[in-house]
Simulated assay, not measured.
Amino acid sequence: MTRDLITKISDKDVNIDELAEKTITDPEMRDKIVGLMLNHQHIMVYYHSFYIICRASQIKPELFYPYWDDFTSLLNHPNSYHRNFALALLANLTPADNENRFQSILNDYFLCLNDEKIMTACKCIKNTAKILESKTELTDEIIDILLDVDNRSDFSLKQKALLKSYIIELFYKFYGQIIDQKPVAEFVKGELDNISPKTRKITRKFLDKYS
């Protein structure tokens, strides 16, 4: 089964939705695909396995909660793709996190704001939306981390400008959920002259709505 599964998953035209459904209904299939994502060396195998798990865990996060520690271990993986997998999958699992395990990895999760890859840092921020939706009690702690992005990341000015566009998008979406809004408003106002057109655009959108 494993060899046939690897052949199927590695196909560039693999049906992600079909395999995601099978992963949901078949515990053995689920375990095999998680194993392929974690351990297989071929990019088409581990990347397609991630797509399958990501889709399935959005639908049934509780089925993948037993793999929490496996996914957490990927935060320190030498391959940036696998670090990206961790960011997405852990965020997907937060609705099923009844044991509040995310709290214990929160700092490790947001260390990715200073990843060696700018796209991993961006994915960290993008996936934060899922976390804020299901972990509202962590809102202010997470917002404080994002407000401190200049001190927490060593990226160039241009790269930080990109990061801030994603941060302000989060602020725009979750502003009503934030208790201490003043530092957020001040942060956003400070980006009106940001070098990134994208960041300036979302800044104006935020200020038009919340000023």
Rank of each mutant, 00 (worst) to 15 (best):
K135I: 10
R30K: 15
E116M: 05
K164T: 01
D150L: 01
D11Q: 10
K182I: 08
D208K: 15
C54I: 03
K123P: 00
N114E: 05
S153T: 13
M119E: 06
L111T: 11
D70G: 02
G190W: 02
D13Q: 12
E18R: 14
L132S: 06
D150H: 09
K32L: 14
I178Y: 04
A185G: 04
I16Y: 10
T94D: 03
K173M: 09
F174M: 08
D193W: 06
R101N: 12
K126L: 03
A129L: 02
Y65E: 08
L138T: 10
E21V: 12
T7N: 09
P27D: 13
I143G: 11
S10N: 05
D193F: 05
K8T: 15
S196W: 09
A88F: 02
N79H: 13
K123R: 13
N114Q: 08
E133G: 09
D26S: 13
E62V: 05
I105S: 04
M44D: 15
K8F: 03
K182V: 07
D17M: 10
F110Y: 15
S10G: 04
D17T: 12
L90W: 07
N76M: 13
L163V: 00
I131D: 05
K160H: 01
E186K: 13
D31R: 14
K198R: 10
L157M: 10
L132N: 07
A161R: 04
K164M: 02
S134W: 05
N127I: 01
S156K: 11
A91Y: 03
Q58L: 13
D13I: 02
R83W: 03
N92A: 11
H48Q: 13
K209P: 00
V149K: 03
E62T: 07
W68P: 03
L163K: 00
I202G: 00
L163A: 00
F206K: 02
L89N: 08
F85K: 02
L93G: 11
Q159S: 11
N151W: 01
D108Q: 15
Y172Q: 05
H48W: 06
D148F: 01
H40C: 05
Q177W: 02
L192V: 05
I59M: 11
N79Y: 12
Q177G: 05
I33P: 02
D154M: 04
Y47R: 15
M1N: 13
D69C: 05
H40N: 15
I142T: 14
K60I: 01
N79Q: 14
K8A: 15
Q159F: 01
L147W: 02
K135Y: 07
K198T: 00
F155Q: 00
E62R: 08
E116K: 12
S49H: 08
N194I: 00
N39G: 03
Q181A: 11
N151R: 10
G176V: 09
L93Y: 12
K173P: 00
N79F: 11
I52Q: 08
I195G: 05
E137V: 14
E191F: 01
T128L: 05
Y47E: 11
D154H: 08
I168Y: 00
S57D: 07
A161Y: 01
K135F: 06
